[in-house]
Design a protein around this nucleic acid. Structure first.
Length: 225
DNA sequence: CCATTAACTGACT
DNA sequence: AGTCAGTTAATGG
């Protein structure tokens, strides 16, 4: 059985697409393995779309001091890239662990969406959700202090891992992040991140099980008004 | 005061 | 050897 087809089927995006259809679009994709810390996309690259198949991929920019600012961390099924936008992308995209990524160029991507309209709905939901999350993070960066930024980050990461109606009080964040990664998402130093986490643990605002964070949703929401 | 950098440490791989 | 996390001291806006 064709390995590429099998992998495409595993992606949420193509989950309920008939097998024949997947076979038909299979040739549009190329798959590539990337080593840890290998750059997949950098400013100046154009007209390429990627879908994470396995591994973990980081979207980031460098600020004027050369410090890394993480925009998003993407896992299996997430899509990213440039579709010929007017202003060039300024992001780097890099594998944080060994990863496998599907790619296709802009024209093939549009061909695909035009021929499989069901994909458009999923894609747009996914993209708009992420746009909203990123917008929130940006305004938070501008107006909130480190503590509040972290609280909001926790809540949005928690929402992502609960995915459906997060009426639960106790939320666990499914993915694990290093202090370094969290600090780069918040625009603070690694040490400040560590002390912030420890403070919140002492105040019983945050709990840890190994590398995973757990917290009480409404308790944190009180801060983030 | 709050956050940052630098430097050292121990734990884990 | 390299990565990660916790701590301290000195510095700056």
């Amino acid at each position: 059985m064709n390995k590429k087809i099998w992998y495409l089927q595993q992606l949420d995006l193509f989950a309920n697409l008939a097998r024949e259809k997947i076979q038909a679009i299979e040739s549009l994709f190329t798959m590539k393995d990337y080593y840890k810390r290998e750059v997949i996309f950098e400013p100046g690259d154009k007209n390429k779309v990627f879908i994470v198949k396995t591994g973990r991929v980081e979207v980031y920019q460098l600020n004027s001091n050369g410090k890394k600012i993480i925009i998003e961390i993407l896992k299996q099924g997430s899509i990213f890239g440039d579709l010929g936008s007017d202003s060039p992308m300024e992001s780097y995209i890099e594998a944080t662990v060994d990863s496998c990524v599907c790619s296709l160029d802009k024209d093939k991507f549009f061909y695909l969406v035009a021929h499989e309209p069901q994909l458009a709905e999923k894609l747009m939901k996914n993209l708009f959700n992420r746009l909203i999350l990123v917008e929130k993070r940006v305004s938070s960066l501008a107006v909130d202090n480190a503590f509040l930024r972290f609280v909001k980050l926790l809540l949005s990461l928690g929402r992502k891992s609960e995915s459906d109606f997060g009426d639960k009080e106790s939320i666990e964040i499914a993915d694990s992040f290093t202090h370094e990664e969290l600090s780069q998402m918040l625009g603070i130093s690694r040490q400040t991140m560590t002390t912030l986490i420890n403070q919140m643990e002492r105040q019983k605002l945050l709990f840890r099980q190994g590398k995973k964070f757990r917290f009480n949703k409404s308790q944190l929401e009180k801060f983030s008004s």
